[in-house]
């Protein structure tokens, strides 16, 4: 345990089995403090996505407990899940974008679900879309964008409501070197503004020369590097 710091993500002996006998996680323990920037690595199939999905309660652990911001997720009722997800911005590995909607509409969705009206959210959306370098494509449909551009739309949507926790699942998976650097820089910036970041990636290059904490998933357990 890290002493003194306030933990925002905590896993205690978390286990996740998929029927019939796939063990994605086994006794995973982890504590991430407020304001940390943590890389989560491990080869494809190691269970990174599974771990993240459990953090926003899209998946239930088959054992152990997960505590986010002091709340044990197993105690959350269905009606409390939206509150959790507003706190946790997720960049999905498969983007989960609405392909027939524009960039603006996709990014705005995160704010609309909070009850914001178009005139209240539009400047914020523009700002964030500009931050990921897509200003000129604001009213393009997502289906017309390249994979890398779509990835950045997914990033914009995850951060537009300024969540205190950001879970990034391979957010650079479809990007070239330059864009990758940009995305990592964007994450650094969000982190500097106070967001806690868990960055899952199989790309070791991203953290070889970082001072950040790096966790590796191996055999269903979490190791500190």
């Amino acid at each position: 345990m890290l002493s003194g710091d306030q933990s925002v993500i905590e896993l205690r002996e978390v286990q996740k089995k998929y029927a019939p006998d796939i063990v994605a996680l086994e006794e995973a323990d982890l504590t991430i403090s407020k304001g940390e920037f943590v890389f989560l690595t491990g080869p494809s199939g190691a269970g990174k996505s599974t771990l993240l999905r459990m953090l926003y309660k899209a998946e239930e652990p088959t054992g152990g407990s997960i505590i986010i911001d002091g709340v044990d997720l197993s105690s959350l009722s269905k009606s409390q899940i939206p509150q959790l997800r507003r706190k946790v911005g997720v960049i999905f590995q498969d983007f989960k974008l609405l392909f027939n909607k524009t960039v603006f509409e996709n990014v705005a969705l995160s704010l609309e679900v909070l009850g914001l009206k178009k005139n209240q959210l539009s400047s914020r959306v523009r700002q964030v879309v500009e931050g990921v370098g897509l200003s000129d494509k604001l009213h393009r449909k997502v289906v017309q964008l390249s994979g890398g551009e779509q990835q950045r739309v997914a990033i914009a949507r995850a951060v537009v409501n300024r969540p205190p926790i950001i879970l990034a699942d391979e957010p650079t998976g479809n990007l070239d070197r330059k864009r990758t650097t940009e995305v990592v820089a964007l994450m650094e910036e969000l982190n500097a503004r106070g967001a806690t970041i868990l960055f899952a990636t199989h790309d070791e290059n991203l953290f070889t020369d970082t001072h950040r904490r790096v966790l590796r998933l191996k055999d269903g357990k979490i190791e500190e590097l």
Partner: peptide, 16 residues
Amino acid sequence: QDEIEIMRLVGATNGF
């Protein structure tokens, strides 16, 4: 359905 799933993931309530 896709839209509903995504809305859920970004924190939409049942009412919404």
